[in-house]
Nucleic acid binder design. Sequence first.
DNA 1: ACCTGCTTTGCACACGATTGCAGAGATACT
DNA 2: AGTATCTCTGCAATCGTGTGCAAAGCAGGT
Lengths: 345, 345
Amino acid sequence: MVTLEDIALKAGVSHSTVSRALADSPLVNPSTKERIQNLAREAGYQVNQVARNLKTRSTKTIGLVVPEVSNPFYPELIQRVADHAKLAGYSLQLHLSAADQESESDCIASLSANRADGVLLVTGERGLVARSQVNALTASGTPVVIMGWVEDSDHLDLVAGDDSAGGRELASHLADLGHTRIAVLGKAPHRGAFDRLVGFGDVLRERGIPLPPAMSIEVKNEEDVRLGVTRLLALPDPPTAIFAYQDSLAAVVYRQLEEAGVSIPSEMTVVGFDDLDLATYLSPRLTTVGAHISPLASAFVSLLVARIQGTHPEPAPQSIIVTPKLIVRASSAPPRTRGFASAGI
Amino acid sequence: MVTLEDIALKAGVSHSTVSRALADSPLVNPSTKERIQNLAREAGYQVNQVARNLKTRSTKTIGLVVPEVSNPFYPELIQRVADHAKLAGYSLQLHLSAADQESESDCIASLSANRADGVLLVTGERGLVARSQVNALTASGTPVVIMGWVEDSDHLDLVAGDDSAGGRELASHLADLGHTRIAVLGKAPHRGAFDRLVGFGDVLRERGIPLPPAMSIEVKNEEDVRLGVTRLLALPDPPTAIFAYQDSLAAVVYRQLEEAGVSIPSEMTVVGFDDLDLATYLSPRLTTVGAHISPLASAFVSLLVARIQGTHPEPAPQSIIVTPKLIVRASSAPPRTRGFASAGI
DNA sequence: ACCTGCTTTGCACACGATTGCAGAGATACT
DNA sequence: AGTATCTCTGCAATCGTGTGCAAAGCAGGT
């Protein structure tokens, strides 16, 4: 690898002059500057960022920690974050924090060792696992911004969707359509974690729609979803609508309903949450609720960059809450009435 | 940030001793070693990788260049590559090379400046764009391994699926089922690029199945797919099977067929290519062809690591070709016979 | 001729780690 | 006691850049 010194020898100057010439400093004579720049280009000089980072004590790099990439929500987010970070002059260092990968703490340790200028941390289902490491990192001067649900977010910079509001939107939509027997498929509920379920439940209560235990099913994996749907269909009074708390789960519900010969939306309404690209691939296209990912990513990056550069007007931790919107597609419709159902076909 | 020198002061030794103690060197007295390690832990010492990388002239980092992440094939690949890289002791630096992002050349320049130990480059539809930069990088001692189609791969380390064989498998499957009117949806065909289409076409020819121009449709985006499907259905002799050259396109075909009231597979067989997770989300589940991504990623990383460490037995560029397998699911069936079709319903 | 000011360049140190080499003590052996 | 050996520690150089400071060279004004 060719260094500043190599160019300096060729040009008959000192490495300082070469450094300044390549930085286009006004301190160096225009003619020699051009000569040096040409020489560097011909020699295929590539600055050694490692050395530069050491000297300038900044890497122009932000770490992005994401639980996984098999759920399509995350790739979409990564793409947007990459766009915005590049725009701000930062490059990205991606780490996956899922169980079989590095744990969240390891990711943070690695980013800290590599002296990332800042860290964007997206929490998974378990919330913020590495809270103490995050605090330590912040204390040592590296800003961290969290995205997603966190148990106690008082002392953190945070960007999150308003899951509770989204849940309320969906429940209202179903109630407006006239559904009164509604089932919910949720994942092992960490205390307070799944606000979308809470918001959903609140509206049902307000509207006087019951949610008996048999209609509220915890699912941990695809198999659970299959069993759950089967059990719902076998009830004496089966639901007319199913809320899957993630679009990716709704996809599994679709499959199971299809195998059972139940058509969507005429015999069963299905709604999801997140508004992934997936939602429009499914047929019928899925009614769901979600925020546009791009503005979310933009807020995420902007806040971090402002923290890094110390330009944020408000020194106290910020919480940016984005309200998701209801997107009505083809998977939701009014319930078939009893009489009509038995008379049907 | 606390440095070796800080710990050295606290311990009353020189920074050399601290460095050796933390590296668990046998050159330092066991008792002082332990004392230093404790001190470092209490002080929250985090090695400065930037400095270490400069000194050791190695970053234990490999660059991964991927066209985009909205096509679900890539996230799956990223995940696997991350797994295998971590296993080999390397961390990942991800770059997106799609048009609106950094171009391939910029990605390589950045990785070169950051002194990545090696580069994994996944080509997109346009093949290897930054060939000269790749050659320069290889020449300067940083190994590069390519994944995907490349026009002239003689002097490159390469891992690729055998698209031609995959195309043949699919065509044979359709022919075996008895289809004789088969349509193909492909993307703007760069010369030699889409071997999957070539292999598919070869088998049709061998079996004496015609592929008239009206049945071979170029598509550039979703809208093209919609139009194409509509046009196919309007033909006097519409096809009984459609081959979409990517699973993600097959998903769009599904949607359009559904809107047209054509049921899969009873009225139309649809097959894809890649075997994404998506293929099993669709209903009916998609018949497709693909290689398991994990072994592909493993070969990809292993080859690069062997090159980095100079342990590969064969110094000449290697081509590793993986043969994909046919996965028959629920979207393919024998064609309805003419007579039966008109008598049907 | 001398002073002042401006442009341009080089010297030398710093960033934070690793590591070869020398040397200080301690121990063992003749 | 003297010497060889072994264990442990510190000195100092190094990786490749960036940059404050000094100084050289030159022009212009008195």
